[in-house]
Write a protein that binds this DNA or RNA. Structure first.
Length: 305
DNA sequence: TCGAGTCAAGGCTAT
DNA sequence: ATAGCCTTGACTCGA
């Protein structure tokens, strides 16, 4: 089991998400920004290895305007060596990597322009995985999209669009059950049509479900991942912040809830992304708990905790 | 130097 | 019809 956290490291004094405004776009700023972001990404990955965190979600903004028409700079070739070096490090340390394109990526939109921009963003993020030399067990995770008043039509439109995607995107794309619109059961319908794996979010499942017990939901989601092509089930873990709106993530790991959740795994191997506000701090607590339970590998000898 | 407003992109829900 | 929310950091400008 690999444990991770998304995008941002709060311990280090660098950011892999520096950017700038569209209005101030220049090729030179792309160069300086990507250089800075990749250098910071490498530092974050090294921090993670030293602390036994072998799953990481890379932020969408490594290359500013990476899928926008304004950016015609050939960053794919100019930064090929840097991407390759990071990919080599990831493979050497056997880390798992994901991207989570944000809410603007909507493959089932009825607006062709939105679909076109969404595909461009997936191609951009997938091409970073290609440049790193990572295989199809590194994933791009998105939601099914909008309802537009008709669930069946919305799902059919997702399926139709999925079939038109470039293969490099198809082999890496996974869908995540969300907390308001498309449940695990809806995602399973999409999976049955096109074979896409389902990234399981335990908290979303608590918010929106059809009475599938957690252990059963995990089993269903895990069954959508091909062991060699896709790797073990990726999941997002979070829990409800008490006293807040339903769906609000906790600010830090609630240890008792986490221990309870782990019992539902019942031996299932997963790679777990902790979607918790305090990032690596909670991820480290999770690793400690799993280690105590014998479910996570001990720290490497080189680790400095 | 610091605080406030704003930033490429979407869609749902409450009012 | 329209504002607010999701979720979030970082840029940018003006004081």
């Amino acid at each position: 089991m690999k444990i991770g956290y998304p995008c941002v490291n709060e311990t280090l004094d660098c950011s892999a998400a520096t950017t700038f405004r569209l209005a101030s776009y220049t090729d030179e700023r792309v160069v300086t920004t990507v250089t800075n972001n990749l250098a910071c990404l490498q530092r974050i990955l090294e921090f993670n290895v030293q602390h036994g965190l072998l799953f990481f979600r890379i932020g969408s903004g490594i290359v500013p305007f990476g899928s926008h028409a304004v950016n015609t700079f050939p960053w794919q070739t100019e930064f090929a060596p840097q991407f390759r070096a990071i990919g080599d490090y990831i493979k050497a340390e056997q880390m798992r990597i994901s991207f989570h394109p944000d809410q603007f990526v909507v493959l089932n939109s009825p607006d062709p322009g939105i679909v076109e921009r969404s595909i461009a963003e997936l191609v951009y993020q997938g091409s970073m995985l290609d440049l790193m030399g990572l295989d199809s067990t590194a994933k791009l995770q998105i939601h099914v999209g909008g309802l537009y008043g008709d669930r069946d039509v919305a799902i059919e439109r997702f399926i139709a669009t999925y079939r038109t995607l470039p293969e490099a995107v198809q082999v890496r794309l996974v869908i995540e059950n969300d907390d308001r619109l498309f449940s695990l059961r809806d995602c399973l319908r999409v999976h049955e049509a096109v074979g896409i794996p389902i990234l399981f979010d335990n908290f979303h499942h608590e918010c929106l479900n059809h009475d599938e017990p957690m252990q059963e939901a995990l089993r269903l989601a895990a069954g959508t991942w091909h062991p060699t092509h896709d790797g073990v089930l990726m999941m997002d873990y979070s829990s409800q912040q008490l006293g807040e709106r339903k769906g609000k993530h906790t600010s830090s790991l609630v240890e008792e809830r986490f221990r309870e959740f782990v019992t539902h795994l019942n031996g299932l191997d997963v790679d777990m992304m902790l979607e918790i506000k305090d990032k690596e701090a909670s991820a480290l607590r999770a690793v400690a708990i799993l280690r105590e339970l014998g479910l996570a590998a001990p720290l490497p000898l080189s680790a400095s905790v």
